[in-house]
Design a protein around this nucleic acid. Structure first.
Lengths: 233, 233
DNA sequence: GTCTATATGTAGATAGAC
DNA sequence: GTCTATCTACATATAGAC
């Protein structure tokens, strides 16, 4: 297994001038291919060679644009983290701006819906295949202690804000319990990316493509009820 | 990445006579080491060489006793699956034998407690390190479509029985919804093996070692409430 | 910035002596 | 059954021509 250094060099080398159009295209297609392959096969399972081949690039271009494999992985994860956080925080702000008191359901929706929508798990449209891969990638990062540092940088700050928001809704609840329920909810959310095959294996009658909205609504209801039960006791 | 064949040879070669004591010990120590390393690093991240070294065995012994790496992985997963299923089904039978009507909570407890207990996540004792590793391994198998076949053999039959039991408790509920809630619950359960570090990262005040029982009880309450909400609608 | 060629390490698997 | 030695393939990474 590759050793993970604690502070990877994120840039291959300092960029001295603006990159050309072609250079940018190469760099991007490498990121896209890496996103797909890391999501499909995991960090160790996806080779830089295969990533370069899938991107239609030379293997040396990968090092040139993104440095080490580890730095490439971090870049892939970081690339969409900001947008996802922005969508979640915007949804939270919108929920708070609505008249009437803020509800737990609204807070959970604000956190879960952007993920589900981007991953094509509900709403209209099939979903961007890159975002679909990214959704799986988040599950990989979340489940592996090796990527703790990346998770802390990319996801935990926003998660912390949502937990704080929920703590305001339940002033008497123990923060630790909120964090536990939050982790359960995230696990359930991510299972839609990693374990949809299991749902169909376990339920012969489960709708194949239809019922995506059902899945998404079911997730929110499941988590909200779970949260209330966890915080009431 | 290694290609996964659809029907791996599980035995290196047909066994013609009883194995010697030393042979059994070697075979076992390889399984134990593989369990730990696969759980820590994943299938691709753990090398057969490292497994052999950790077992204090030669690399050639691994092939001799367990065949290919893929077959070794399957054996490691299968080894404890039977015992876990037995514990779960015994707990379910005991719940049904108790006076009074069977409750959803009792069914979920019967499924979740054996896992939590074996993984050392609640109750007395620190938990067998081998079972702790196995609990992580189950998360790896569940999240990766590559191990679909193993999951189908080892875990889905028992899961199907529990789903059928829940379906009897909620005759009007859609089976597909039960399966979805079940997958959410399993994901939450497994997150206790893969994401406990996240709980502590998100909650500065979370109890470090204490509160294991809290975690376990919280899981059951979370899942039960989630189930009811998912099946009521 | 891109490409060829290569350096260097490690992977899984097995042949054959003991 | 175990052990040494080795085969072959593939991994990451980089040097240097263009």
């Amino acid at each position: 297994m590759t050793k993970i250094s604690s502070a990877p060099d994120l840039a291959a080398r300092p960029r001295l001038r603006a990159a050309s159009k072609r250079s940018l295209a190469t760099s991007l297609s490498i990121l896209d291919a890496a996103e797909i392959l890391f999501a499909e096969r995991g960090y160790d399972g996806a080779s830089v060679r295969d990533i370069a081949a899938a991107a239609g690039a030379q293997i040396a271009s990968v090092s040139f644009h993104h440095g080490s494999k580890e730095a490439l992985f971090a870049r892939v994860v970081e690339r969409r983290a900001k947008e996802l956080s922005r969508l979640r925080l915007e949804a939270l702000a919108a929920a708070k701006a609505r008249p009437g008191p803020l509800t737990l359901e609204a807070v959970l929706e604000a956190f879960l819906r952007p993920y589900l929508e981007k991953a094509g798990l509900h709403g209209s449209g099939a979903g961007d295949p890159q975002w679909l891969a990214y959704a799986r990638l988040m599950a990989i990062v979340s489940a592996d202690a090796r990527w703790h540092a990346i998770s802390e940088r990319c996801f935990d700050p926003t998660a912390g804000l949502f937990i704080a928001e929920i703590a305001r809704l339940f002033p008497k609840a123990d923060t630790a319990r909120i964090a536990v329920a939050f982790v359960f909810s995230v696990a359930a959310m991510l299972s839609l990316s990693t374990s949809r095959w299991r749902i169909h294996a376990l339920s012969p009658t489960a709708p194949a493509a239809a019922g995506m909205d059902d899945l998404a609504n079911g997730l929110v209801r499941f988590c909200e009820a779970g949260f209330r039960a966890a915080l009431d006791g």
